[in-house]
Computed example of a mutant assay.
Amino acid sequence: MAYGTALAVLADPTRRKVLERLRAGPRPVNMLAAGLPVSRPAVSQHLRALKEAGLVDERSEGVRRIYSLRREGFLELRDWLDTFWDSALVAFKQEVEKTDGVVE
């Protein structure tokens, strides 16, 4: 998964809401769709996009599809986000070393 794909998929507020619901654990589509302002088939479409981006997994349980968060997809996204933090820490360290630790 490229981080750009994940960011594009996460731009949609309905998809973010679905992911928030999956934080509580695996859920079937009907539970994920309950109370959302979109239809169950629309939630299925959002889940397909999340799955293609590598952010959710799907398994069959009888006739139901159960969705869960895919940890690896979030780790890849987090690794990319951490590069910003790493850069900020390096810049901070360089600034401290430049002033030789003297606080004005």
Score class of each variant (00 low, 15 high):
residue 71 R to F: 11
residue 99 T to G: 07
residue 83 T to L: 15
residue 101 G to H: 04
residue 54 G to I: 02
residue 45 Q to T: 15
residue 54 G to W: 00
residue 42 A to N: 10
residue 46 H to K: 07
residue 75 L to K: 10
residue 66 I to T: 01
residue 24 A to L: 04
residue 25 G to S: 01
residue 5 T to F: 09
residue 86 D to I: 14
residue 46 H to R: 06
residue 10 L to W: 11
residue 86 D to E: 13
residue 89 L to T: 15
residue 40 R to N: 00
residue 87 S to Q: 10
residue 12 D to F: 14
residue 65 R to Q: 09
residue 66 I to W: 06
residue 75 L to W: 05
residue 12 D to V: 09
residue 95 E to Q: 10
residue 18 V to K: 00
residue 28 P to E: 10
residue 86 D to W: 11
residue 21 R to F: 10
residue 73 G to P: 05
residue 26 P to D: 12
residue 73 G to N: 04
residue 83 T to K: 15
residue 15 R to D: 00
residue 39 S to T: 07
residue 50 L to E: 11
residue 85 W to R: 12
residue 13 P to C: 05
residue 30 N to L: 06
residue 89 L to F: 15
residue 80 W to K: 15
residue 50 L to N: 02
residue 63 V to H: 11
residue 5 T to W: 13
residue 22 L to P: 02
residue 68 S to W: 09
residue 48 R to T: 13
residue 96 V to Q: 03
residue 38 V to Q: 12
residue 2 A to H: 05
residue 100 D to W: 01
residue 99 T to C: 05
residue 90 V to K: 09
residue 81 L to A: 10
residue 42 A to F: 14
residue 25 G to R: 11
residue 92 F to D: 08
residue 33 A to M: 04
residue 73 G to L: 03
residue 43 V to P: 00
residue 63 V to C: 03
residue 14 T to C: 06
residue 39 S to P: 01
residue 103 V to S: 02
residue 43 V to E: 00
residue 45 Q to K: 15
residue 25 G to N: 12
residue 21 R to K: 14
residue 89 L to R: 14
residue 25 G to Q: 10
residue 66 I to R: 02
residue 60 S to N: 10
residue 93 K to I: 02
residue 88 A to P: 02
residue 48 R to L: 11
residue 50 L to R: 08
residue 103 V to D: 03
residue 14 T to N: 07
residue 79 D to L: 09
residue 17 K to F: 01
residue 99 T to K: 05
residue 17 K to E: 06
residue 46 H to L: 06
residue 93 K to V: 14
residue 12 D to G: 05
residue 70 R to V: 06
residue 22 L to Y: 03
residue 78 R to A: 08
residue 16 R to F: 00
residue 60 S to D: 15
residue 91 A to N: 14
residue 1 M to W: 11
residue 79 D to C: 02
residue 102 V to W: 12
residue 48 R to G: 14
residue 24 A to K: 11
residue 82 D to Y: 13
residue 4 G to H: 14
residue 68 S to Q: 08
residue 103 V to F: 07
residue 39 S to A: 06
residue 32 L to C: 01
residue 9 V to G: 06
residue 63 V to W: 07
residue 63 V to M: 07
residue 93 K to M: 04
residue 39 S to E: 07
residue 37 P to Q: 11
residue 13 P to Y: 00
residue 46 H to T: 07
residue 94 Q to T: 03
residue 8 A to F: 15
residue 88 A to G: 08
residue 74 F to S: 01
residue 41 P to C: 03
residue 84 F to L: 13
residue 44 S to K: 06
residue 32 L to R: 07
residue 18 V to C: 02
residue 80 W to E: 14
residue 31 M to I: 06
residue 52 E to T: 09
residue 93 K to L: 03
residue 77 L to Q: 08
residue 78 R to K: 11
residue 98 K to A: 04
residue 21 R to I: 13
residue 34 A to M: 03
residue 57 D to N: 10
residue 10 L to M: 05
residue 56 V to L: 05
residue 30 N to S: 06
residue 59 R to T: 04
residue 101 G to P: 02
residue 67 Y to I: 08
residue 103 V to T: 03
residue 103 V to L: 07
residue 94 Q to H: 01
residue 53 A to L: 02
residue 84 F to G: 15
residue 24 A to R: 13
residue 25 G to E: 12
residue 96 V to N: 08
residue 97 E to Y: 12
residue 50 L to Q: 14
residue 24 A to C: 02
residue 27 R to D: 01
residue 69 L to C: 08
residue 33 A to E: 01
